[in-house]
Design a protein around this nucleic acid. Sequence first.
DNA 1: CATAGGAGG
DNA 2: CCTAGCCTCCTATGA
Length: 886
Amino acid sequence: MEKLILIDGNNIIYRAFFAMPPLTNASGQQTNAVYGFTTMLLRLIEEHKPSHMMVAFDAGKETFRHADYQDYKGGRQKTPPELSGQFPLLKELLKGLGVSQFEISGYEADDIIGTITRQADEAGRQVMVVSGDKDMLQLASGNTTIAVVRKGVTEIEYFGPEQIKERYDLTPEQIIDLKGLMGDASDNIPGIPGVGEKTALKLLHQFGTVEQVISRTDELKGKMKEKIEEHADSAVLSKKLATIYREVPLELSLDDMKFDGLNQETAGPALAKLEFKSLIERLDLSTHAGADAAEGAAKQAQVNVTVVHAGELAEVKEALDSVQVLHVETHGDNPHHAEVIGLALATEQRQFYIPFEVLKSEEAEPLRAWLADSEIPKRGYDLHRLDLALHWQGIAFAGAAFDVHLAAYLLDPTESNQSLSGLAGKYGLSYLQADEEVFGKGAKYKVPDEAVLSENLARKCLAVSELVPIQEKELEANGMLPLFHELEMPLSRILADMEKQGIAVNVEDLKELGREFESQIEKLVQQIYEIAGTEFNLNSPKQLGEILFVKLQLPVIKKTKTGFSTDAEVLEKLAPYHDIVRLILQYRTIAKLQSTYVEGLLKEISDRTGKVHTYYRQTIAATGRLSSQYPNLQNIPIRLEEGRKLRKVFVPSEPGWSILAADYSQIELRVLAHISDDERLKEAFIHDMDIHTKTAMDVFGVSEDQVDANMRRSAKAVNFGIVYGISDYGLSQNLNITRKEAAAFIDQYFEVFQGVRRYMDEIVKQAKQEGYVKTLLERRRYLPEINASNFNLRSFAERTAMNTPIQGTAADIIKLAMVQMDKALQEKKLKSRMLLQVHDELVFEVPEDELEVMKKLVPEVMSHALKLSVPLKSDVSYGSNWYEAK
DNA sequence: CATAGGAGG
DNA sequence: CCTAGCCTCCTATGA
């Protein structure tokens, strides 16, 4: 027997929100309304065992009702942001549970439900409507039961035509008349003033309909008669507003609402994501996709780990063919210098722990060959780090097939706890302790005894093997499998290769630079002390503030929360007042170069190779960019000549080779042109115009030769602002103009680039609806604060919504170029090596006889990495060091 | 361990 | 009227 349940999504989540205490998950996202909704939903499923189910939502601000009555729902409080942020969560959860949902622009949920019940009536199908709104009673019929939810969401009262007759002595149709007379304060439906439920019922029992009441007022007397005559129009309008529209153009078939029980594969993970652990337990769901609950539970309980000592490797070697997962325990932040503790391997049935001394021993050679075999697929957590740590111990690693760390990053790049135990916990795998608990933290770090250690590593392996299928499902559901398998996984191996290779540094030149900086610093410091009339610590903003603003009485431009601000922006403004300020600015510049780039870089030169080996981090930046550590080679100075000189110390590692660098020209604005589909912007790039000049021409409405330096500078600032999610304040700061002027500027820009304006509006709207934004390659970033009531939080999220698809797509593109470049170098058997990536730039070292090829190949690959509606442009140059390659 | 400041895209 | 640019990493102070 078919049984369809229709749920008024907006009404129920609203009720749940006010009924439930404010529950939040670990990331601070409020989830109480989703929780309340879910408990009610699960109860309905249990009690009624529906064969079909659908949750209907309101969509679109203006419904057709506003055409009749502008104030419709006018008095209603705006949806609290703490609630609106939960809509995307609920919609995502419903997907995971396998419950269909529907909304159609311009109609409310009850119209959708009204239309479906009409169709069901016509077909003679059983339907149950769930809502807290008594209006729904008008839909009751022999086939349609109305479940009215009360007391928050804890009680349900069922109404068919008989129950309505019993309670009100009315037919379902008369419910509309009832509301027409009494109105509804919450929807701002007026009704007749002074007529409440009691009077309305009395009138309807006597006359039957609103129309009859109005036309037969002569049968009434006194105040009542006057009021009804006076507000007759209002009653008719109110009746119309209260009538559920049952002719919505729906293209829904019954099959679209099929419900085959909770989706056993995705329900657990979806609930786990919201941290509804009690519900998972209650439903006996496994968070392990595809596994049955009993199996999942059994797996949690048992690890079966064998510690492999010297001379005991036979068993491991035999089991190698069936090993699925590995884990290498390391210690230390910098993987190039990490200590390797040991290796854990896991088959489906058991785990092995091989201490590092054993792994190094001669008899473990087959094990190392297994590790190095790229044809053997391996799963694990942070395989990139493991690869580097093993490499410096002389052990090769290849065959990374699934890295749960990378997968977790794609599924939520802003997740703060990316540790394996954090990840496991997120999916309800509670058997894995945090590393801090097992090893201690900071100076207290200590490898526990073998029994504890091997148990922990075995559990890590188990967690990985449980996470892989869950994440695979989620990646698939998000359309991210290609991004994962074809971009991020291959890239992680390429990054490891680049890092192992490292870039050579000319130590003598670097030290010489350091001596030059040192003497400049000494001079500056002496002059500053002299002018100040006292010695103090120039590196202390606190002491410096004291000198500038107390002793020298310079005007205070800006304050920080701890005192006077002395940053460069402030000092620039103070420069005209006092000679000391220029000197301080110079000191700051040189001191920065000395401490961070000369001394910092010297510390990072490897005594094994004489090179610097940065560590690219693939799972940090929320937009999908890489970041670089130990040292950071993505912020080597270039803008000021003094600092740019540092690039001279980055040299080829082999005599006669060159450094070759290629960078994308205006990649972010080109990406913007593509995704916004702005005709003017696209045209500028199709004709390869100077984009800032072109912007100035269009915004100021002048010809090319009328654009002066100042206009171009302003246009450039606006272009940057656009990419970052512009605010008039930000632009005004940047250009040193008033906020009004900046606002006018931005307006003018959007007037000219209307496609860009449309994109900015659309992307924010989309983010508010879906809860996330994505790049061209489907990389996601969730924006839980997009509906916050706090202005700052919300504005921040809105700018992020505008910026992330741009910056993120640019990141996607250069990553694609790296994968393609790596392939091209291999296929063409070139000796040239890719060494560095700096967001929009790739740096190579190239032998003399490959220069000509590489000069063509690199820009060729970069500009065709991804086909956009505008050309991608890449400029290439080379020289005897990074400075010369400009 | 937090804050200020500054280097890059 | 006010809030107040996007994404990072590193060094120095000073509590």
